[in-house]
Amino acid sequence: MSDKHLARGFEADLHLLSTRLLEMGGLVESQIALAMKALNTWDVALVELVIEGERRLNAMEIEIDEAVSNIIARRQPAARDLRLLMATSKCVANLERAGDEARKIAKRMRRIATDGAARSINIAEIKVSGEMASQILRRALDAFARMDTVAAAQIVQDDEAIDNEFRAFVRKLITYMMEDPRTIAIGLDYLFIAKAIERIGDHATNIAEFVIYVVKGTDVRHVSHEQL
């Protein structure tokens, strides 16, 4: 087989891998949307849909990781191609964990729905941060598809906004708990949900950082925003 045919075969392998990664990302976006809808509408029936979707995510993670291993074994890539395959595997892990967080939100919401005190707590910050996390994940996947380092760097900066919403909600939650001890149990449930949303934003940010790693060959996971 000629080098040209080998190159085309390798490109086809990478394209298929990228397609599967983006499909998995789309499923995670759907999971987050369902979890947030359940929280907004108190529809416990949506919880089972999120749990079922999480099983599919687990299967996709295994499938894509196996594909990455097979490509590395058969093609023995180097430089940027190797970085792309390594980053793909890490992105898949982050997507699976983001899906786990969506499942946690949905399951915690099922508990909250039976508590009469739940509706007395204003969760505006949770709703805002949930939308932010979903948008950042979508942008991170788009940056990965286009290998857009400028967009990726901006995502890393923007994740701070989700952290700010989380901190604002924690401060408000403490006030609720101090004024009415009966809200402590439900407040802790909401705190769990807010933390899960913050982690989804973190996973999306990790994906953006891997874009920079693939293109520039530089690991930026622990550099400051100014350095980035």
Rank of each mutant, 00 (worst) to 15 (best):
H222E: 07
N206L: 09
M177W: 10
T114W: 15
R20H: 15
H222D: 11
V50G: 05
R146N: 15
K127S: 11
K127M: 12
V214H: 04
E101P: 08
I207M: 00
L137S: 01
V211I: 11
T175N: 10
L34R: 13
M177I: 14
A208R: 00
G201F: 00
D189P: 08
V220S: 11
S18Y: 08
T114K: 12
I71L: 08
G201M: 02
I155L: 02
S134R: 11
Q227H: 05
M132V: 07
R119M: 14
F192W: 12
W42Q: 07
R55M: 12
K90Y: 07
I121Q: 02
N206V: 02
C91V: 03
D148S: 02
L188Y: 11
M86D: 06
F144G: 04
A79T: 06
M36A: 00
K104F: 14
I71G: 00
R110P: 01
I112H: 10
S129K: 02
V50Q: 07
D115E: 14
V92R: 03
K107W: 08
M147H: 11
S69G: 09
N122R: 12
M147A: 09
E179T: 11
G25D: 05
T114A: 15
I186R: 01
M177H: 04
D43Q: 04
A194W: 07
R55Y: 05
A133R: 00
V44W: 12
S89I: 02
A161N: 11
A45P: 06
V211S: 00
Y213I: 08
A7L: 13
F169R: 03
A194K: 09
A106N: 06
M147P: 02
A185Y: 03
T218L: 12
Q157W: 11
D65Y: 04
L17I: 13
N40T: 08
G130N: 03
G53W: 07
H225N: 15
P181D: 08
H222C: 09
M1F: 09
T149R: 05
A113N: 05
A79R: 01
V68M: 04
A93R: 04
L84D: 06
V223E: 10
R97V: 10
S224V: 05
G217D: 02
L17H: 10
T41Y: 01
A118R: 04
L188Q: 13
A143M: 01
S30K: 14
Y213W: 05
M147E: 13
G25L: 08
T19I: 09
F144D: 03
Q31Y: 04
D158N: 13
I174Q: 15
E54G: 01
D219A: 09
I186M: 06
S120M: 13
H225T: 13
